[in-house]
Amino acid sequence: MERIIENIKKQFPLQDVNSDHGWFITCEKKDVISLLTHLKITGGFTHLILITAVDWIEEDRFQLTYLLNNPQLKIRLGLRTFIERSVWPDESEMQSAHHLWPAVKTYQRELHEMFGIDFPGSPEVNDPLILEYWDDIPPYRRDFDTKKYSEETYFPREGRGSNDPAEYMKSQLYPNEGGKSQDFPQEISKKSSGEKNA
């Protein structure tokens, strides 16, 4: 894996290499398509697992992740890039990679719908996918308040309550102890053994 990364580094300027949870490399927006092409054709990463985006609203940017798989060597590589985050109703823009894998156009349609990232030239990118003719802020952007939207739109039913599962189960199972213990699984084993003794 390191050898592959070294090879890539020779040809493309990488901003960051991270191997904490699998291998992720970060490059600039303009290099993404050429790097993907390189990885697919010469690097053996012939399988695109997915494309996804993360909304870093504090840093005012989107992170795009292309997850690739090499079926021969059985290794995976994530390619990250950061693009500018535009304020709705403006859309961010990214180059399309639909010529590399046919499935890419569906991912790009989804990103266009859910994040408002446009991929000019990608086929059918303007067609509605899951949300048919959505006209609000794209729902996966973090400035979209989903709870408020749901309450305004979908007629919430009265009388809905919610409990913290840990607290609720504690009060149900051990009504006398009043939630003294912090560690829930240990409490169960202690209690059950105590019951057996008594």
């Binding site: 979209f144 989903t146 749901s150 309450e151 007629f155 039913r157 809905r160």
Partner: peptide, 19 residues
């Protein structure tokens, strides 16, 4: 179908079917 269940605050899930 009754009140949205675990998707009660979702942007895309209907809360009450009987509406």
């Amino acid at each position: 179908t009754i009140n949205g269940g675990m998707y009660w605050d979702s942007y895309n899930t209907v809360n009450r079917l009987d509406h």
